[in-house]
Amino acid sequence: MTWLVRLKLAALVLTTVVLQTTLFPDLRLFGVAPDLVLVATIAVASRVGPETGAVYGFASGLVIDLFLQTPLGLSALSFAVVAYGIGILHTGLSRTPRFIAAMLGGAGGLAGGLIFVVLAALAGEDQVIAFRTIWVLVLAAVYDALLAVPMFPVARWAVGSTGAETPAIRGARST
């Protein structure tokens, strides 16, 4: 991975964190905000594979954790695990299905939310243990799925052709 790609990925982390902390608190649907930083992590992980994706997810999660009142490291671990899973899943795909961005965005958003809630509950954050949490996770996942559509091209721009491309991407490129 070149320095230019690293620089672009750092810029992507900063941009998504700024958007998440300034714009998206006001763009809640039924009181639920999407997780743009997680969506970017999913998009990047689908391009660069599990290891680099997990490192990106950890870094971006750590930065957004600095702006949350929940313990530092919760989002970092959740995002790293999701990125790792998305990286493995996408690596195993022999062809890219239609709506892959929305599908991965929704599934990754739901998984990331679930992992975050479980970890938060284990860390003593009792406020996540509520019936409303199910509603929040599902709605946020739908929102994440929609945001993934424009986010995947951004990740493609950031990573370029230097990322560890998965067979699915190679297949899509060659067709």
Partner: peptide, 17 residues
């Protein structure tokens, strides 16, 4: 890689709590 990130996260969570 995953184990390293896991251990780092757990350490950070513990320190912050």
């Amino acid at each position: 890689v995953l184990i390293l990130l896991f251990v780092t996260s757990i350490t950070l969570i513990t320190l912050d709590v």
